[in-house]
Nucleic acid binder design. Structure first.
Lengths: 254, 254
DNA sequence: TTGTCCGTTCCGTTCGCCGGAACGCGCCGC
DNA sequence: GCGGCGCGTTCCGGCGAACGGAACGGACAA
């Protein structure tokens, strides 16, 4: 049995695994780290990385480490929901920001996670750890609760069946309790997440509906946890969400 | 002679060619179009596309057409200069926006082109066609002139040697005239591009310098062409640029 | 000096990838 | 109805691109 163990994954899968190896915590990697994380051999990583650098998907610093290249920006900016939804929503998000000077976030659901599509972060606002393109679980954030509350029953079941991470002592992790929260979100038309991700932040979120009245996205305002009467923010957020929904209605393109 | 013509490009090159096939003008493509643009056979495009969809780099609409997937956002947002520069610059860009309520743009140079890294676009501001991640020639926009004026001599020569596209009647396309413009930009410390891209817009731009005092980016304000005394905006833009430069100075990470 | 970890290059083997061909489908115009 | 067209999908045999091991050179620390 002198045969060597060969990697049977497709080349594409390997390339994508290499891109996946980069995380916010480790935005630049040596070739060895890259190979290790992607689960491919060093010579292979060397070849693939060289190709990616040539195209611009990666770039290589003076220290020899690899980073994500700017070329990907160009392609990624064409993401469809990103494009259409973002363009429509932006003016409303800006209005919301100008009125409140707080963090404004726009997110869509992708499977059992949410993806932030747009974000306006004031320098005076409470710092948040989100980033455009970033992902998060659905059960803790304001936008996540809205998206989950209006997701298909099958998605809700899967989300509730999975173990729910407790980010703080306030995070709701019991399925039954979460079910009640989701019902309240549907009833009220908005969601409030008080210190469920970080204790010093509180978010108020509202659903954005597509032409078919299905919830396709959520917008939220993230404020300091000690903000007085945060509930008074709900109408503001809901108004923005409704405005976006209305603008989306006559859209023929998804 | 019975041998078939096989594509000798690497799989990676094909995958990247497929991503490249998507443009702002054609953000969604049928499989056939995709194959044609990427220069690969239909079965191959089918296989590669399926892998990309599985990973999330592409998604497939109900009409069967392919679009760029949101997953790429996540990766692209880790782009290094994007990350660091954006985070540092954002507060200053926001300030600039709040004072003026005009379009604010941040761009870096990439070869003979500029890439927009960030943008704040007010709904009341003049519409511009730029997009984060978008590319543009260097010789016409305000940011482009700043980046070109401070680029290495070799880059300037190449840029001036290439044919310069005339976007409007006001675009400076004669190399000698452009040389004078660039000298003025260096002398003044800011650039003004009046109607050189579109006749109804005017931009004022200033250079952002890295720790080594080299120009690494440019920030601009785009206003309506009939704005009174646009030169009075220059100090504002320069102040923002200097603030960003100062914040970058103690940075140890590039 | 030795050991370790890095990146790079070479090489023989092999299996994943290739395009042609065939097929099913929906949509025309005749 | 019926042939033609352009889709997308699947199958197949041949072959070359991609694979991992191995060897090499450089940087650095013990």
């Amino acid at each position: 049995m002198g045969t060597v163990a060969r990697d049977t994954r497709s080349v594409t899968a390997k390339v994508l695994a290499m891109l996946e190896a980069f995380t916010p915590a480790t935005p630049q990697l040596t070739l060895s780290e890259l190979a290790r994380r992607a689960g491919i051999s060093l010579p292979t990583a060397h070849r693939r990385a060289a190709e990616l650098v040539e195209w611009g998907a990666l770039e290589r610093g003076a220290d020899g480490r690899y980073r994500i290249g700017l070329r990907l920006w160009e392609v990624a900016s064409l993401a469809p929901r990103g494009l259409r939804l973002r363009d429509v929503a932006m003016p409303f998000l800006e209005d919301l920001y100008e009125v409140t000077h707080e963090n404004v976030q726009l997110a869509v659901r992708e499977g059992l996670e949410l993806v932030f599509v747009e974000r306006i972060a004031g320098r005076r606002a409470v710092p948040v750890l989100t980033r455009v393109g970033g992902r998060f679980a659905l059960h803790a954030t304001g936008v996540g609760l809205v998206l989950l509350a209006h997701a298909p029953a099958e998605v809700q079941e899967r989300a509730l069946a999975a173990p729910l991470q407790a980010y703080t002592a306030k995070t709701v992790t019991e399925p039954d309790r979460l079910r009640e929260v989701l019902a309240a979100v549907r009833r009220n038309g908005y969601a409030v997440s008080d210190g469920q991700v970080t204790l010093d932040a509180l978010s108020v979120a509202a659903p954005i509906r597509g032409p078919g009245d299905e919830v396709i996205a959520a917008v939220s305002l993230v404020v300091r946890a000690d903000t007085a009467a945060p509930i008074t923010l709900a109408p503001l957020v809901q108004a923005a969400a409704r405005g976006i929904s209305r603008s989306l209605a006559p859209g023929r393109d998804r």
